[in-house]
């Protein structure tokens, strides 16, 4: 296949969970990507930061709660999670509200990281 080739791949998440399937199916891509030994990072911007808001309880809507999966990412050596500072602030959230360890940075800083990527996948 593509042995030896390591690309910088960033997954950009800008959508809230449950209202649409994008967050869940994006996470499914990330889990598969882990097996390819690439340089993977995840950016959470805009409503995407709601994906990491602690305390999802989905029993009432009968949808699988996929929040525990974010906590498993570290086991797959996926630990570059960037959260947009302005998005948190605009939503009255802070780093403590996040269900996993993240690095909070400005949109411009995330934009700078985007420039460094080989591939950006957005859902």
């Amino acid at each position: 296949m593509s042995e030896g080739q390591v690309k910088k791949i960033m997954y950009v998440n800008r959508k809230a969970p449950y209202g649409t399937i994008y967050a869940l199916e994006s996470l499914e891509v990330v889990l598969i990507a882990a097996a390819f030994d690439q340089d993977v990072s995840l950016a959470f911007m805009d409503d995407g930061v709601y994906q990491l808001k602690k305390g999802h309880q989905t029993k009432g809507i009968e949808v699988k709660n996929f929040q525990p999966t974010y906590r498993a990412l570290d086991d797959y050596d996926i630990n570059k999670l960037y959260v947009e500072k302005e998005a948190l602030e605009a939503r009255g959230l802070s780093e403590e509200d996040m269900c996993v360890p993240v690095e909070v940075m400005s949109a411009a800083e995330i934009g700078k990281l985007m420039e460094e990527q080989d591939v950006l996948l957005s859902f």
């Binding site: 911007m45 805009d46 949109a107 411009a108 995330i110 934009g111 700078k112 985007m114 420039e115």
Partner: peptide
């Protein structure tokens, strides 16, 4: 807000 977000991140 896609354009806003884009412009905020674009270098």
């Amino acid at each position: 807000n896609a354009l806003d977000s884009c412009l905020a991140a674009a270098q």
